[in-house]
Design a protein around this nucleic acid. Sequence first.
DNA 1: AGCACGCCGACT
DNA 2: GTCGGCGTGCTC
Length: 797
Amino acid sequence: MQVAKVIVDVPSRQTNIPFSYLIPDNLSDSVTVGMRVQVPFGRRKITGFVVELSDHSDFDGKLKPIEALIDLTPVINPELMDLAVKMSQTTYSFLISCLQTMLPGGMRTSFAKRITAKSEQVVKENDWLFQGKSSVEINPSTTAESTTKKLLDLNKSDEIVVDYVLKRNSSAIEVLGIKATMTPEQLDKQRGLIRANATSQHKLLNVLSEQNNAKLLQSDLVKSGISASAIKSAIDKGWAKQIKIHQNRNPFMQPVKQTSALKLNVAQQNAVDKVSLSIDERDATRFLLEGVTGSGKTEVYLQSMAHALEQGRTALMLVPEITLTPQIVNRIRSRFGDQVAMLHSAMSNGERFDEWQRINRGKAKVVVGVRSAIFAPIKNLGVIIVDEEHDSSYKQSDNPRYQTREVAKFRADYNHCPVVFGSATPSLESRARAQKGVYQLLSLPKRINDQVLPKVDVVDMRQELKNSGSLLSAPLQEKITEKLSRHEQIILMLNRRGYASFLMCRDCGYVPQCPNCDISLTVHKNSHSLQCHYCGHQEPIPTECPMCHSKRIRNFGYGSEQLEEQVKELFPDARTLRMDVDTTRKKGSHERIIDAFANHEADILLGTQMIAKGLDFPDVTLVGVLNSDSALQFPDFRSSERTFELLTQVAGRAGRADKVGEVVIQTYNPNHYAIKFAKTQDYEGFYQKEMGIRRLGKYPPFYYTIKITGNSKNENTVMTRMVALTSYLKEHLSSKAIVLGPTPKMITRVNNQYYYQIIIKYRFEDQLQSALNRILNDSQKLKDVQLSIDNEPLDFM
DNA sequence: AGCACGCCGACT
DNA sequence: GTCGGCGTGCTC
């Protein structure tokens, strides 16, 4: 008997165990661990991952056979299989979720329900469903309840057959395009029929007649300034027809010039030597590479990776979400050429699938990517680089809540290779480990070419408030004027957390709240609506106060939109660019804004955090942080660390070329240590001070932490359950463990669900994992409260 | 998560 | 009497 143990694609606690299936004879040679299979499960058909092959099963019932193979080669290799199991244990999440997150998005398969009528009569009677066809496909997750009921009836009366068809939503390599249907002569005549000022349509006519036989990509046309509506009207007017183009995807836009290794300074050379030695000796040393912006960390990464390749091994480099710009990728590709594969969230599903496939086939020797790239199926790793290791995007915020740094260590152990964690402002956890000798510390103390650090001014906004109340302090305004007159560029950053603009009645103080959540609604000017950032609720902006009917209901607080308005008022001649979630929502718009600013199409770039990181504009000589301390307002133990990090990062943006940069930090807490150390760019000073505070507060890195969140639509139910959990935990953990709570979350109600949390702080608790698993299992039965566990949460909020 | 079975209220 | 509400439990 040949049996495959399968983890089925049903994310629930009861199905979080392998199910046994018979391997039919025709598949007996092909089924391997790590492949996905199609199996019957109850009445349904679903996908699953083969996790083990065996000659027997412990299940007493009758085994069903595997129906089909989805993959011809394993998609999860043995290393990743081990990792998935370990990860599901440490993150308290389902094994199936871990396996799924390892695959590139778009490779997920799902089943569509196919409804087939048993007779012509049935088709006719149910035109709402069949619309003349004898068989239709239905997506189970988007089917309305009323439809489901009707289908059930039809099924009962034996009028239809329901089965399932596999839907593979990967690699849709088809993109929209158009092709001319008229000859150039005919197109010429069309010119007379459209308005002279319809520039977009004229342009399109030119392109159509010049490239009369070509298949034109819609995205290329839009890029060259032809509007989508012009394309649409071209199709309507019969100039061209819409076609689907099979595109050979290549995520790298242009070819890059080959570059070679740069000369290293003493500290850099030392770092490269240490890492190389560790690669040669195949030991899984963890390095912490600490060096300020401009100290040449990237060159150390590149030469370490080059060394791994020389030894016939491979390299994996991780960068934070927003830092993975074409600039960075090109720098890596210029060194390693076509052996580089890139995995980035801004790529399309299809592009990522292609890159993943190249890696899985062993065609790529270097992988560069964001968080999820840590699961790239690259074999024979020689070195792993985690750049900006403190960055919060390395922790996944939903299940499985893994920390990329920890996954990197697992893979390093498995491959016997070193990991290099690099940062100008390392996380306290990593820096403390370096202190204890768990990580090996490598320092790059000097900036390349002995560039001077920018000059940082701190402006006390409490004084400024008395004077004007403007967002921009007088000293900052002066500096902006000065830089503008010299045609130098400026970056203004607004830390938007908690500073979104809301509506308030000037007469009675009423602030519109979200009906589903405990939070005020945010004003969105461009869509002219009030929106809730937590549940997505939208409503129109009222013209009068619903409470007191006053007309004096106005914006309050500052968003980047308000900032832009104010800047335009104060500096009418300056050209501004805004970069925030609103202006970067569309794919590629992020790059477009960066390029535009780099090309001096604007004098002032303003926006939120995302402009702080990784960008390199040599002509920026002034950076202003308008509300540097808004993070400090948050009651969270990491708020100082975040503030310091952010300010240090932004300061690094100013004056990287020959010009000395200036930084203006506006704050209401000029005496806060995070601000003071940021002013002098003194990471080590900050580290010492912050460690003292963490020790006193029994926070990480002195204690490990776990956050348990519970939610329910009834506030009392969650509260009682969480109180019970707290006493259970106190009973089952040692007296040294600290169990805090339960406390309502800062925003207690979201989407009409009430959220409460418990924090556990501990050092050594061997009973913890089993206690938490028991809690999760029990909560399966009592499903009035939803529980989720976050191991080493980023915040306690 | 689905999907079915099963046990109690308001209706042709 | 039955249709249908959703609580409970299983899926190899």
